[in-house]
Each structure stands twice: as structure tokens, then as C-alpha cells.
Amino acid sequence: MSVSGVFDYFSGRPRHPVGPDGRMALSDHARELRARLLRSAFALVLAFCLALFFYDDLLRLIEAPYKEALPRLQPGTKSEIVLNGVTAGLMLQLKLCGVAAIVVASPYWLYQIWAFIMPGLHPSEKKWTRTFVAIAGPLFLLGVATGYYVLPTGIAVLLQFAPDTATTLVEFTQYFSFITRMLLVFGIAFEIPLFVIMLNLAGVVSGRALGKYRPWIILGVFVFAAVATPSTDPFSMLMLGIPMLVLFLVAEVIARLVDRSRGRGRDSTAQWDDDEVSPL
């Protein structure tokens, strides 16, 4: 393939006239999607190569919660971290660098997804989605940081269940999967209140309804925190449940303000019973 052909694959430029409202031919949409997927894949490959260069630093970052948990164990509790199999070290390196590449390249490939969807949105939708994109990233990182902070305590509690006469052998690949799940749970959980606000802006959920079912929401938050955290200690549950609850309360306040600004407040709905059919 010539250089111009490779450039055409990555550029995704439309070959048909684009309408005034941004409408494109189906073949041009497919060409643009292919180009954005190739760009994202290329960015992931570059990030993977970069992660290979910093593999030792990434390994120390992953090992840190386990090493911090060991001094917290009761006297007599023994644990060692091991690798099973000849190819275990290679697979661990590939998985660790792969996850690091996805995280490092996430701003770029998320932008590619956003840029592909954005032409089909209305101006008001573009304004709100820009705001959500700006908030979603920091919230996810805050959740991941919180999960990383509670990991040593969760690991120490889980290791305490082993009898004193046994040595707990922690298989590194499973340990890495455990950490990945823990961090993803915390990161995604911190995004849930943001989706509640999005549903409110779409008119699906009102601030008044959130206040009415607040006790059940509080119960649901802590049940979710207890079930979602891979560790069984109450500290991890509280470290996930309390920030989620605070974010939900903030989401309720924002939802009420949005309802008031749009005339969807208490006065506009007080005349109708919950089981009564509206004229609409």
C-alpha cells in the first residue's frame, strides 16, 4: 500500500459532500469509524511500548498494597506472593502493560469516540456532554485513588482468615486481577451519581423523587458497597459507601435546582397523585 493510501486509512476524510447539518453518507461514516479505530489502536500500541519501558515501576506500584498489608497482619500469619507456571511472568508483564496502556491512552481513545458521536448531537446536548466529560474523568480517577488507598486494609483483612499453621501463597496473576476489579469498582461507583444527574436532565428522574426515596437509596448504596467490594472488611465498604452517599446527596441537590429552573418543582406536580393519570 502506498503512503497516500495509508494516510487515507488514518484520515477518514469523507469522499461525498457533507450536508449543512453535518450529515454524511453511510460509506463516509464507516470510513471515519475505521480511521478512528485505527488511530486508537495505534495510540494503544505506543502506550503499550511505553509501559514496557516502565514495567519495573508499574510492578512496584502494584506490589505496594500487598507489601503495606504484611506489617498489619497478626503475629503468626504468613503469606508469600508467587508465580505459577513457566509463562506466568510473561503473561503478567503483558497484562500489566496492557492495562497501563488502556489507562494512559484513555484520553485519546475516549476523544475519538466522542468526536465520532458529537456531529449527531444537538447544540444543547453537546454543551451538557462536554460538561459531563469534564467531570467524569476526575470522578473516575478519584474513585480509583480511593480504592488504591483502601487496598492494603482489605488485603490484610482477607489474609487474616488463614490459620496460623498455614502459609498463604498469593498467586500474582490472581492478585493483579483482584486489584484491577477493586479499582474498577471504585472508579465506576463514583460515576453513578453523575448518571443520576444525566437522567434528571433528560426528565427521567426528578429531584423530588430522589428525596422521596432517599432512605431506600441510602440502604441501596451501602448494600451495593458491601457486595461490589471484593474484600469483606467493613472499612472498604465504608470507604466506598460514604463517598457514594455524599455524591448522591449532591446529585439530589443539583437535580432539585434543575427542576426548579425548568419549572418542574413541587408546585407543578403537587396537584397530581402518584397513581392518577395526567391529561398528557
Score class of each variant (00 low, 15 high):
residue 193 P to T: 07
residue 150 V to D: 00
residue 180 T to N: 07
residue 122 H to W: 07
residue 211 G to V: 02
residue 184 L to I: 14
residue 208 R to E: 14
residue 195 F to K: 07
residue 141 L to V: 14
residue 234 P to Y: 04
residue 204 V to S: 08
residue 141 L to P: 02
residue 166 A to L: 15
residue 141 L to Y: 11
residue 214 R to W: 12
residue 194 L to P: 05
residue 156 A to Q: 02
residue 152 P to W: 09
residue 228 A to D: 04
residue 210 L to A: 07
residue 145 A to T: 04
residue 180 T to M: 12
residue 132 F to I: 11
residue 241 G to L: 06
residue 165 T to E: 15
residue 128 W to A: 14
residue 162 A to F: 07
residue 227 V to N: 01
residue 180 T to R: 11
residue 153 T to C: 00
residue 134 A to R: 10
residue 145 A to I: 03
residue 141 L to W: 10
residue 181 R to A: 12
residue 172 F to C: 04
residue 222 F to H: 02
residue 187 G to L: 06
residue 138 P to H: 02
residue 176 F to D: 07
residue 154 G to A: 01
residue 142 L to M: 14
residue 238 L to Q: 05
residue 142 L to V: 10
residue 217 I to L: 14
residue 148 Y to R: 09
residue 178 F to P: 00
residue 211 G to R: 14
residue 235 F to Q: 12
residue 149 Y to L: 11
residue 146 T to K: 06
residue 242 I to R: 04
residue 181 R to G: 05
residue 169 L to T: 01
residue 242 I to W: 07
residue 168 T to P: 04
residue 231 S to W: 00
residue 122 H to S: 13
residue 215 P to Y: 06
residue 142 L to G: 13
residue 242 I to T: 11
residue 205 V to F: 06
residue 198 M to Y: 13
residue 210 L to D: 11
residue 137 G to L: 15
residue 221 V to L: 10
residue 209 A to M: 14
residue 212 K to T: 10
residue 125 E to G: 09
residue 138 P to V: 07
residue 121 L to C: 01
residue 196 V to F: 05
residue 129 T to P: 02
residue 126 K to H: 06
residue 130 R to I: 03
residue 135 I to R: 10
residue 210 L to Q: 08
residue 229 T to E: 03
residue 133 V to P: 01
residue 185 V to G: 01
residue 136 A to P: 07
residue 206 S to K: 13
residue 171 E to W: 03
residue 224 F to N: 05
residue 172 F to V: 06
residue 156 A to H: 03
residue 213 Y to L: 13
residue 121 L to N: 03
residue 130 R to S: 11
residue 233 D to N: 01
residue 137 G to M: 14
residue 152 P to A: 02
residue 200 N to A: 09
residue 234 P to W: 11
residue 230 P to K: 08
residue 238 L to M: 15
residue 197 I to Y: 10
residue 171 E to K: 01
residue 149 Y to C: 10
residue 192 I to C: 09
residue 205 V to R: 00
residue 156 A to F: 00
residue 164 D to E: 15
residue 235 F to N: 07
residue 183 L to F: 02
residue 144 V to N: 08
residue 202 A to L: 15
residue 128 W to E: 14
residue 152 P to N: 09
residue 135 I to W: 11
residue 137 G to A: 13
residue 181 R to C: 05
residue 181 R to D: 12
residue 192 I to F: 15
residue 141 L to M: 13
residue 172 F to A: 13
residue 183 L to Q: 03
residue 126 K to E: 04
residue 188 I to H: 10
residue 177 S to L: 10
residue 200 N to Y: 04
residue 143 G to W: 00
residue 130 R to H: 11
residue 173 T to Y: 08
residue 230 P to L: 00
residue 175 Y to G: 01
residue 149 Y to K: 07
residue 240 L to A: 03
residue 194 L to D: 05
residue 232 T to I: 10
residue 184 L to V: 13
residue 214 R to S: 12
residue 217 I to E: 10
residue 212 K to W: 09
residue 220 G to P: 11
residue 135 I to L: 14
residue 194 L to M: 13
residue 121 L to Y: 01
residue 170 V to N: 11
residue 154 G to M: 02
residue 185 V to C: 08
residue 171 E to P: 02
residue 231 S to G: 09
residue 199 L to N: 04
residue 239 M to P: 05
residue 160 Q to A: 11
residue 132 F to H: 02
residue 214 R to L: 14
residue 209 A to E: 15
residue 174 Q to T: 05
residue 135 I to K: 05
residue 140 F to T: 03
residue 211 G to T: 02
residue 202 A to N: 13
residue 146 T to W: 02
residue 163 P to I: 00
residue 158 L to T: 07
residue 127 K to W: 06
